[in-house]
Write a protein that binds this DNA or RNA. Structure first.
Lengths: 183, 183
DNA sequence: GTCTATAATTCGATAGAC
DNA sequence: GTCTATCGAATTATAGAC
């Protein structure tokens, strides 16, 4: 079957994200990705050069964080908690990064980049004392990533069972204190 | 060189924990573990049967959680935060489990077992309403594992830079609310 | 643009000598 | 108890025909 170059690349990327999210970097083989995409394994190398570069492309995604500057200051915690439960679910980028960043140094570096480039700048606009911004952003990251880890990767039963409303009620105040509360 | 059976097993286990913690399950090869232990790769199989059983033995450790029943009720949050920063550091079990649980189903299952067998029972003694215990234990796990992940695995700079006192001051109130606070 | 065939590694695990 | 030697399987990546 003949396809356009772009179509094939998109097919491969979609399959790659699926496998990287489900199995992590090592167990996600080029062969399995190609099988899911319905093409030959050699095509993957042809288009992306190597497995490492395929991963870099697959994991280079926008976390699409909400603009917390638009919500009332006393609601930023709830807004972030809502975003966390609504958008960072299964099939999103976050599980991919979590599953890979722990064993792949390139992915860990990407995680630090995403953190520094997308989460931290967003926090700076909220904090009174700019010198406190990095620590506050880091704290928000520990709770956000910990929740995603327990819910979508480890599947801890009680965390999996929490409803959207429960999650916001519990995590919202935590984020509120980390982002805009007293230190 | 001749050693006792127990000495060799201990050598292998120590090297295995080192490699599993640093590289995760897949990248921690039996060959590399044997090289660190200074013995032949075939000895690993001889003593533990398979890589999977070696991992099960290496990861079967006591988290040695503090007995939160012995501290004043309004101090359990700080006590857990202190334990988190003091004991669950580099070289401990937690990084091993984190690095492996994300890509190895057996390790993920072990993580759920550790959670259900060690953390949850400890929480039950603190909570007034027993029906709330699982959710509260799960919430504490999200913050605890998220902190360990960001600090010891991802090495996010601001999280890495936090002192023991800062960590307790920030995380203590969070744990306090999850464990013994209003819902 | 797609495929077959295969090179070059690397891994887990086994057999058997000493 | 320890080692050498090796098997069989799986992987990434390449070369080249169509």
């Amino acid at each position: 079957m003949r396809r356009s170059s772009e179509d094939t690349k998109a097919l491969i990327l979609r399959a790659a994200r699926e496998h990287f999210a489900a199995d992590g970097y090592d167990r996600a083989t080029i062969r399995a990705i190609a099988a899911t995409a319905g093409i030959d394994p050699s095509m993957v190398i042809r288009y992306f050069g190597s497995k490492e570069r395929l991963f870099a492309t697959a994991a280079d995604i926008d976390l699409r964080l909400p603009d917390l500057g638009e919500v009332p200051r006393d609601q930023v915690g709830n807004a972030l908690a809502a975003h966390l439960v609504d958008r960072w679910g299964d099939g999103d980028v976050l599980p991919i990064l979590l599953r890979t960043a722990v064993t792949n140094e390139g992915a860990a570096d990407r995680m630090r980049t995403v953190f520094a480039g997308q989460l931290a700048p967003l926090i700076i606009k909220l904090v009174d004392d700019p010198s406190e911004a990095p620590a506050r952003a880091g704290l928000a990251a520990t709770q956000a990533l910990g929740f995603a880890l327990c819910r979508h990767v480890l599947a801890l039963p009680p965390v999996l069972a929490m409803s959207r409303e429960e999650t916001i009620a519990w995590l919202g105040p935590t984020f509120q204190r980390y982002l805009a509360g007293p230190r």
